[in-house]
Design a protein around this nucleic acid. Structure first.
Lengths: 101, 101
DNA sequence: TATACACGCAACCATTTGATTGCGCAAAAT
DNA sequence: ATTTTGCGCAATCAAATGGTTGCGTGTATA
């Protein structure tokens, strides 16, 4: 089971869950109320998000509040940043421009 | 077949292909030479990248050169924007902690 | 003209994914 | 004490994914 952040955010439902959790921590039931699929389906998505630490849990009584872990999302940002650098530093771009008549 | 940028970059091989293509445009054969799987497997990855316009093609004779489309990658960046605030504020908090004697 | 090459496409296969249903357990409410 | 609620877990299933092999077509080369 390879679980990385990229695979976690590949699913639109999981992205929506993350967006919800940026507002405030929520229980699985509260999250599921925003979607038209079963609580269990949402629960499995949360589990995947938890496995790669994009969300963390905090239990109070029988309720479990899940909250977003922004730090983990940095991994995507870091990759994008490296990518951007690599792209911007390519030196054949000038050549392309000069070649056009 | 939903094909969005997030699903495209979920696969590590596809991310590696994109990384290669930031350096210069390449043919499927040239790309496949960098991986230990068949040309067809790479070709399918390229097709997925092309479907969501992360790469564009330019045919010259019997060769097809694929090049990276940076514009499309912006979609990820735009989506990430909503989270960036959170970890930046977290940084501020860390500053606060460090400032206290 | 005959041969070698670059590539896309289709068929096929094992594994993973996303969803459902049913269950059991512990905490809260009655 | 009994019922209701919130939740995770296991079994199950259709569909998607990532890979393979084989084939056809069009372009370059001998």
């Amino acid at each position: 089971m390879r679980r990385d952040v990229f695979q976690a955010i590949a699913d639109p439902t999981r992205r929506a869950i993350l967006s919800l959790l940026t507002l405030h921590a929520m229980t699985p039931n509260a999250i599921a109320a925003h979607f038209d699929c079963s609580r269990q389906a949402i629960s499995k998505h949360i589990q995947i998000l938890a496995e790669c630490h994009l969300v963390e849990q905090h239990q109070t009584g029988r309720e479990i509040n899940y909250h977003f872990n922004a730090e983990k999302m940095k991994e995507v940002d870091i990759w994008m940043e490296q990518f951007r650098k690599q792209w911007e530093s390519r030196f054949d771009q000038l050549d392309e421009i000069l070649k056009t008549p």
